[in-house]
Structures are given as C-alpha cells and as structure tokens.
Design a protein around this nucleic acid. Structure first.
Lengths: 338, 338
DNA sequence: TTCCCGTGTGCAAACGCTTCCAGAATCCTA
DNA sequence: TAGGATTCTGGAAGCGTTTGCACACGGGAA
C-alpha cells in the first residue's frame, strides 16, 4: 500500500506537488502533472480518504434515510439518488429505518453524532425544526423527499392536486359514485400523504356537487393484497358497488382490479379504476394513473445538497417544490355503464 | 465542534485516557471512565471517524455491490444486510451497478481503489479469482451472495435442487406435460442461475422418464409482465397447452396465472403453476413455491465479513454454502384434470 | 522486606494527507 | 531595463485520533 510519499519520490517532486497534481488544485505545470500521474499509476496509488477527510473536513459521503426499500417508490428513489451521487463522485450511506418516532429520533441522533457524512437526504421523514437547525448549524446540507418541512428544501408531487386530478378524470367520464381506497389517516408520519389524497378527492367531489360521506372512503395498506382485500369487500355487494374507484396508489388499484375480475366484473365496463404512481406493473393491467418519477426526485435532492456543498453561496429553494405528476390514461377508466 | 482535547481538559485527564475510556481499550479506572463519559456527554463530543480511521486503518464501512434495487430478491438482501450491519455498528455503502462486464470491472476497480470500506459484499457479481485475490491481499474480507466463486465465501440456495424439487412436486401430482418458464440462458452473469434451474428441471424430468425437448422450455424476463406474456402465448393454443408450468421465479409464475385466468383457464384445475422464491405476492395468488429468505442470506454474508474483521484467525467456510429452500404448498398446484 | 506483576495514567510519535507560506523562475508591462 | 504579476515548487505545520512506551502505584508472593 503505497502512500503519497512514494509517488513523490518516484516522480521526483514533493508531497505537496503530488497532492496538487492529483487533486487539480493549485498550480502545477503540465509536465509535472503527467509525470506524477504516471508515477501514481505505476504504483497503484490512491489517496487515503481518511487522511484527506481529516484535513479537509469532507467525507464525500451522503447519508440517505429511508423507511422502506422493498417498495417501488422507495426503491426508485434510491436508484435515482445512487446514480446521481456516483456521477458526482460521492458515496451513498444507506440507513433504512422505520417510521416509528423512537427509531426516527435514534437515527437522527445517529446522524448528528457521526462525522461521517457531508449531507443528508431524508426520505419521508418528518424532521422537526430544531433537528433541522442542528444539522444545518453543523454545516451539513439536508434535503427531504416528501414534505413540506420548514427550514429544509423538500420536494414531492402535489398530493392534493394529484388526487383531485384523478378524481376529476373519473368525474369527467361521468362517474358520480366514486369510492376512494386510500391509506390509514391515523398513520401520522409520511407527511399526511393519506389525508392529502383524501382531501384532493373530497374537494373534487364537492366541486362537482357530489356529497361525500364516510362510506366513500376506505383505508388499506399500500400494496396489492391491500387493494385486493378491500376490493373484494367493496365490490362484493352489488347494491353498494360504486361505478369507479380512485386508489391512492397503483398497487392498491391493481389489487382492486384483481378483485373485480375475480368477482366477474369487467374493468372498465363495470368498474373504472384509477391510481397514483404509474407503477411499472400498471401498464400490464391497463391501469390509468397519475404518474410520478421517484428516481428524478432522488436526483433532484442530490443536486440540491451537492450544490450547497460545492458552490459556495448557492442555496436551494426555500419553499417546498412540487414535482410534476401527469395523467396517464390507459384502459381501466371509461364512462360508467349507462 | 469539540475535540478530544476539550473532553480531556474538562475531565482533567490526558487525551490518551479519554481515548481509552471512550473506546474501552486498555486500562482505565471505573471512576475515570465515568468522569470522561460525563465530560463527553456534556460537550456533545463524538470521535472523528476520519481521524481514528487514519490511525487504526479501519473505516467501519462495508461496501455492498448489487445489480438491482427495485426487485424483491435484491431489496430483501439489502434490508437484511443493512439491519445486520447497523446492529454491529457498521455503516453500509451502497453501490448499485448493472451486470455488464465493463460496469462490473469499473465498480470493482472502484472498490479496490478506495480506501473507504473494510469489507465487501458482492451480490450476484461474478468476481474472478485474480480480483478476489487482490481484494483479499488488501486485507479486505469479501463475501458473495450467489456463486459458487473460487476463493470467496459465497452462499445461495441450491438452484438445481430447488428446480428439481419444484418439478418433482408437479410430477408427484401426476403431471407429465410440464413447461419450464425460465430466464434467458444466454445471460452469462448471475452465476448461471437460469441454466441451473433449467438443469434441475431436466434432471427431474429425465429421472421420471419423461423426454425433454426444446419446446419444454421458454425464456422470459424475471417479472410479472414477462410471465404474463409468455403465459398468453403458451396457453393460447389449446392443443399445445401443458398441464403444469414450473416458473423460474414467483413473479413469472404470477404472470402465468394471470394469463391463464384471462384465457378462462382455472388454476389449478386446468393448469398447475409452481414458482421459486415465496414472494410476498405469492400468498395472495395462492402460488405454490420453493421459498427462500434473501434477507437472511444478507445477514449471513454480513456475519462472515464482520467476524473476519473482528475475530482474528476466524475464517469463513471455504466452500460455497447452500441455504435452505423449502416447498410452500398453496392452491396453484393440484393433480392434472382427469 | 524485597521483588514482581497487574493497573492506571501521561507523553509523544505516528497515521497520510492538504494547504499556508515563502522563495524561485518566468512573463508581461511600462 | 526595472518591477510587479503570475506560475511553479518545496518545507513544514497541522488535521484529531490511537497506541507504544515509560513511569507510578499498590498488593501478593517469596
């Protein structure tokens, strides 16, 4: 394992020059630079990141806190973040933590406590103002996916708007009897995604002059089996069956479609279904959806923190950023059967 | 940001004693230890990992190379690895890289080149002997999920055996006309998982005295749409329709089930389907499967590398380890109709 | 009593870089 | 031609820890 000293002697220069030549900082003549690079190459030299971190105070690591991995939304974010980080020469330290409050604060302390990351990207993690303050005061940029969050740049789709869009699509097709299959409102984490989507749905309904009652909304876990179970229940009774379902995410929507099929209903003739996400499976099921791109959200968050690190004076948007979500019409929605 | 010096003066001892008290190495009287801890706590002191890495040569990071994130198998591995690593006080550096040869070697160089990780866990990455040699000679333990791989401890289910088990289950039920829907044999990476599963299937068939011909096997991507497309094609022609399908993974199996339903066939009456994985969705579809636990595989790999790091003299198994895979019977398999 | 060993502590030397500073050489401008 | 600005290089001082070594102290064995 050769050090900078070896490279220096081989190239016939000082350690200082090697450092400058290799890092590209400061003046080095072209000739010297090539000689140093050659020496480094023959020795297989590579700088010790601990040593340089020690003096520069930079680790070139970015920490990512994420509550799930095995879900399309979160997995895609990680992919986007990873790609963007590696492109810029940073490494990704992954912290998978559940959403319970204790766990959350433990992880948070963990981050504050470590001198191991230059920045933090928090996915679906409600960081309180004092916590953010503390992190920021340590000079560590932080960005959030989900939000809004005070004092921290955050981004997400506009959940209310997306839900409204989805509901309006159904309304426009002529549906009046639309059930929303969403998440559990009592889950307080997650930036109230569930209640926001419910709200967008209600607002669209009310704008169309349709009464909303508590039967119009049913909660279930955000996965295919969750949608399936609710679908079975909801569609089982013919006299209470809606003509359309707005599912709070595509997995749930797919579950509902499967339940409908199993009950002998055809989609969209007997039932229209719309979801949110544009999940990779949605195309196969013909599921109409409000699409979003979690991978791009991850890239955006990376961009924010890295620019703060590298461009002195640059500051990220001070308010929450809404990323686009667009309607993708497929074959699961149609006018209600006369 | 207070350093060890501050703690030392506050506690009225030397830096050396602080270091020993906090790290638990060397002799420190109980009284001193508590005084130091108190001082550290009031100052909010935390050791600089770069500084201690510089002297100890340890980073407390483990690198994980993985080709995918957004797939159940890989996501579960990451979850298991992350959990095990955090429990032991290590951080996880994630490298998501595709399986193409150039990418692979690039990442590999990347790892060799960095002095940032203490160990490497390679998931589904065929590391060549010289590469392994190099990593090992740097004193960095390495473990692989997938394999076998010479010179590196690896683990995986026994793919041949799993495929045989699945096929035998169908044979035992009385099926003689079984098609294997697997992966593309020409994909050379992945430790030949595809060809191993094909082989287990063939061997079971041959042992039962059933002729295998090239029609018996069809390749498709390892996901639900892949299984669905093949299913549609395969089951479309009634006179060439098998009585059972052995899918190389559950996603494919689920796709086949969906295709069958859509063609009006009922499972298992008209068609039996079995997969491999015991995917979370399989229960909902009643899919019989050969189950495996990627999360535990991840934990096992972590155990190997960490023990090598922490227990001098300990060596991991020198041969490939097969982890258990067990038959989970659900409702997608039954004797063939009449 | 003497000697040795197990404890407890501090000093100072690394660990492998980056960067400030100073000095030398070269170049441009007046 | 003088003088300042620019480019290039090396020496040396850290960065914040860990750890080898030396030393002091006490208790038990001989």
């Amino acid at each position: 394992m050769s050090g900078i000293e070896d490279v220096a002697t081989l190239a016939g220069v000082s350690k200082a020059t090697v450092s400058r030549a290799l890092s590209g900082r400061g003046y080095v003549s072209a000739e010297t630079r090539t000689r140093v690079s050659a020496a480094a190459a023959t020795l297989g030299y590579v700088v010790s990141s601990s040593a340089s971190s020690l003096v520069t105070g930079r680790t070139n690591n970015v920490g990512v806190i994420i509550p799930e991995i095995n879900q399309w939304f979160f997995g895609s974010i990680i992919e986007g973040v990873e790609r963007a980080l590696l492109d810029r020469g940073y490494d990704l330290m992954l912290y998978n933590t559940t959403k319970t409050v204790e766990e959350r604060s433990r992880v948070f302390e963990y981050f504050l406590v470590r001198k191991r990351v230059d920045a933090v990207i928090a996915v679906t993690l409600e960081i309180t103002a004092p916590e953010a303050e503390r992190l920021l005061s340590l000079g560590k940029p932080i960005a959030g996916i989900g939000g809004p969050l005070v004092g921290i740049p955050t981004l997400s789709i506009d959940d209310i708007e997306a839900a409204r869009l989805a509901t309006e699509h159904l309304l426009l097709l002529g549906h009046r009897d639309i059930v929303h299959v969403g998440g559990d409102i009592d889950e307080q984490m997650d930036f109230h995604v569930h209640s926001k989507r419910l709200r967008g749905y209600r607002e669209a309904l009310e704008a169309a002059g349709i009464r909303y009652d508590s039967d119009s909304h049913v909660a279930t876990p955000f996965d295919i089996p969750g949608g399936y179970r609710v679908g079975k229940q909801l569609l089982g009774d013919p006299r209470r069956r809606p003509t359309a379902v707005f599912a709070a995410c595509d997995e749930v929507g797919i579950g509902v479609i499967l339940a409908a099929r199993e009950l002998g209903l055809s989609v969209p003739e007997d039932l229209s279904v719309i979801g949110i996400d544009d999940h990779p499976l949605s195309e196969m099921f013909g599921l109409t959806s409000i699409g979003q791109r979690p991978d791009l959200q991850g890239e955006q968050a990376v961009d924010w923190v890295i620019r703060q690190l590298e461009e002195p004076g640059w500051t990220p948007p001070s308010k929450h950023t809404f990323v686009p979500a667009r309607l993708v019409i497929r074959s699961s929605t149609a006018p209600p059967r006369r």
